[in-house]
């Protein structure tokens, strides 16, 4: 069994290969972590560019036009599409994906666009500047 964990941005760069998977009986599972944006760039814009989110909205998530609609897209390619918006739905969706082996499965996990990747060492500084969370740097032993 193979899972792909993708963002909504990178998934759209090769999602046509779902056709390859369905037609060739390659029932992979795809977990789209859909934050409706080019999230890594958005995080840097938030942290280092005064929150100016220049061209990083993808409009695939909550409260957007949802283009594309990943569930419909999955169905168009002959895959099973599942949308998850609530924490309580996570386990059932994964269970259903695990039980579905006659076609690919795409789970659209609709997540917060403001969630960030932590810990993080900002670019251009030493690793001693690692931040555990925003504005939260651990103490380390400088000899």
């Amino acid at each position: 069994m193979v899972w792909a964990i993708d963002g909504d941005g990178c998934f759209q760069m090769t999602n046509q290969e779902l056709a390859t998977c369905t037609i060739n009986d390659i029932p992979i599972k795809v977990a789209i972590i859909n934050n409706s944006s080019l999230g890594m760039v958005r995080q840097w814009q938030t942290l280092f560019y005064d929150g100016r989110h220049s061209f990083t909205d993808l409009n695939t998530g909550h409260d957007t036009v949802r283009i594309p609609d990943f569930v419909k897209l999955a169905e168009a390619y002959g895959a099973l599409g599942i949308r998850v918006t609530e924490k309580e739905e996570v386990d059932a969706a994964i269970k259903l994906a695990l039980e579905t082996n006659d076609r690919p499965v795409v789970i659209d996990f609709v997540v917060s666009r403001d969630a960030m990747v932590w810990p993080m060492v900002p670019q251009g500084v030493g690793n001693s500047s690692v931040q555990y969370a925003r504005d939260h740097a651990p103490a380390w032993e400088e000899e």
Partner: peptide, 22 residues
């Protein structure tokens, strides 16, 4: 909304990945 970390570490943990924040 969901936390991304919640969906990828949830009850079942996870698999193969690639990509930016994901």
């Amino acid at each position: 909304l969901l936390a991304p970390q919640g969906s990828s570490s949830g009850s079942a943990s996870s698999p193969d990945r690639r990509a930016c924040t994901s």
